[in-house]
Nucleic acid binder design. Structure first.
Length: 467
DNA sequence: TGAAATGTTGGGGCG
DNA sequence: ACGCCCCAACATTTC
């Protein structure tokens, strides 16, 4: 019998439960990827993720050819209609996939399952989470709202077996079914900045994990905070596309002898990701609505100009600008800068977190509805277990603490390069004359701060207090 | 997974 | 020797 393997956010062969189950029921299979064009325009992939997806799919296609001598078939359109047609054409008797947890996918998949259930075998699996959202609940059967107890629950309930090997016994299920050409989708054009930094695909994901476990994890809890050090895992985009599973990562952490403290810090980050997914599952409107309803009447400022300057990295605060420019160029931003830039937008500029979230989704290679919505709400203070309203980052102090030598700023804000290590975080304190000697004219070669920190802070406290 | 304001302490300069 | 002030340095509280 022939079955369809529908790839979605699980672009890998290793540790793929849907693939495993399919291989136990079928000898032949047809791997399929469908570019879902029923998505609302705001839900469609951003520019960096189109590039990533294109390359990841090509990589997956190659792996499938190598292991099973079968191509990955590409289609674009309404997934239900396309799957119905493939089933008709190929007389497939099974359909397998790994689950997604956002509201659009959940509804879509439910309809598809119902429509096929009476005629063929349809099964879905957990390929992206350590625990399913409905399996991590408090004693009263409601979802966790605070991270620490959620984490404790995880640590006492996880049973992580060895990852699933790539099944061997499968063959190409159809000689005649031809998909579309991915090249014609126009997902991407050459992008040097992305190409030199990222390696999409399952192989790239495993190499990245390997390097991380050999190297930076050993001082992770400290180094991870410094944007210039580049010592975070940088696995986020690989995880988003499912090129590697959290299950596989977790198992690797257990199988290597690592310092307990460092390992645990990283495990916490993995569990934060799970917390985001669970929260999105239990609160499907998380991307649109304040988790905390008190924020529904918050008087966000709708200032197009300030928003634009923030996006372009022209706020006059070197750390904020460095982060926003790193994002624009590399499709990624260091965690520390994400917190500072997001705090700056929502607290100093009082701009709605949804505007910031939308921009991040458009640009990030690791854009992930669950993590993005959750964390923007966390920063804005409207989220669950959120950052308290009075926690307002001072972008200068943050720069002095976490970029003391100014390396990160120099990299992304080169017009300030010649300033000293103690001045580069706050060029406005330097005399006009000294600036001139270094070729800097504030307001001309580099912006003056678009808002005074002290005033911005007081204004934010005032509005946030009045919630 | 803050920052700023306010409070406390203790050493040194000085009359 | 003593009290007083200054002010880092650190601790606590407040937003």
């Amino acid at each position: 019998m022939t079955s369809i393997l529908w790839f979605r956010k699980d672009l890998r062969l290793q540790d793929n439960p849907a693939l495993l189950q399919l291989s136990q029921l079928s000898d032949d299979f047809i791997p399929v990827y469908i570019l879902d064009d029923t998505l609302h325009p705001t839900e469609q992939l951003g520019i960096s993720q189109r590039w990533w997806l294109h390359n990841s799919l090509k990589s997956l296609d190659q792996s499938l050819q190598k292991y099973y001598k079968t191509p990955l078939r590409f289609f674009k359109g309404n997934p239900q209609e396309i799957l119905e047609q493939i089933v008709r054409e190929t007389k497939s008797t099974g359909l397998f996939w790994n689950r997604c947890y956002d509201s659009h996918s959940l509804h879509r998949d439910k309809r598809i399952k119902e429509s096929f259930q009476k005629t063929i075998t349809v099964e879905s699996f957990n390929g992206s989470l350590l625990l399913e959202p409905w399996k991590a609940l408090k004693k009263d059967n409601t979802p966790f709202k605070v991270f620490k107890p959620f984490y404790n629950f995880y640590m006492s309930h996880l049973e992580i077996e060895s990852p699933i090997d790539i099944p061997k016994n499968l063959r190409n299920g159809s000689k005649t079914l031809v998909g579309e050409s991915i090249e014609k989708w126009g997902l991407t054009s050459a992008n040097k900045d992305l190409e030199e930094r990222w390696n999409p695909g399952e192989k790239g994901a495993h190499e990245r994990l390997g390097e991380f476990i050999e190297g930076s994890i050993n001082n992770y809890s400290y180094d991870r905070d410094f944007p210039s050090k580049n010592k975070t895992s940088r696995l986020s985009a690989h995880l988003t596309f499912g090129e590697i599973s959290p299950h596989f990562i977790w198992r690797s952490l257990l199988d290597n002898s690592l310092l307990e403290r460092e390992k645990e810090k990283f495990q916490q980050e993995i569990v934060w990701r799970e917390f985001c997914y669970h929260t999105l599952f239990h609160t499907p409107s998380l991307p649109e609505d304040n988790f905390n309803k008190k924020f529904d009447d918050f008087p966000w400022a709708d200032d197009q100009l300030l928003f634009q300057l923030w996006k372009e990295g022209k706020t006059g605060y070197p750390l904020v600008d460095a982060g926003m420019r790193e994002l624009k160029t590399t499709g990624w931003m260091h965690n520390r800068s994400r917190m500072v830039t997001a705090s700056f937008l929502t607290k100093h500029l009082l701009i709605d977190w949804r505007k910031g979230a939308e921009w991040f989704l458009e640009i990030l290679v690791d854009a992930d509805l669950a993590s993005n919505s959750f964390n923007w709400q966390w920063v804005a203070g409207s989220g669950t277990d959120a950052s308290p309203y009075f926690r307002i980052f001072n972008p200068t102090l943050q720069a002095k603490k976490f970029d003391p030598e100014g390396d990160y700023i120099r990299k992304w804000v080169p017009e300030l390069t010649k300033l000293s290590n103690t001045e580069i975080q706050c060029p406005w304190i330097v005399s006009e004359e000294a600036l001139k000697k270094r070729g800097i004219l504030l307001g001309k070669t580099y912006p003056l701060p678009i808002i005074n920190h002290e005033e911005g802070r007081k204004r934010a406290l005032y509005f946030y207090q009045n919630l």
